[in-house]
């Protein structure tokens, strides 16, 4: 299945990309996908990164074909 992954802020900087489509061969939860996407990236506090699946921040969600996933570092609005 194909999933679109969007990277923001310091995660986009560490990954050196803002978006990619990845192919998943196994069933993953959002939390597992986050771990996989962040692996090898130079990010000090990976626990502070949240994953949104179709804009939903619940990381227990199971990823489905066609989902839009976003890796969100701490918010800094205002």
């Amino acid at each position: 299945m194909k999933v679109t992954v969007k990277y923001f802020g310091l995660v986009a900087e560490a990954a050196d990309k803002s978006e990619e489509v990845i192919e998943l061969s196994e069933v993953l939860t959002a939390s597992e996908l986050k771990k996989q996407c962040l692996e090898g990236l130079a990010i000090t506090d990976k626990d502070s990164v949240q994953i949104a699946v179709n804009q939903n921040l619940d990381d227990a969600i199971t990823i489905k074909d066609g989902d839009e996933v976003a890796l969100l570092p701490p918010f800094a609005g205002g």
């Binding site: 949104a52 918010f75 800094a76």
Partner: peptide, 14 residues
């Protein structure tokens, strides 16, 4: 509004 915006909106600042 201000507290909710700061806590919940995915905005990033460099």
């Amino acid at each position: 509004f201000v507290e909710e915006i700061k806590a919940k909106v995915p905005v990033f600042g460099k």
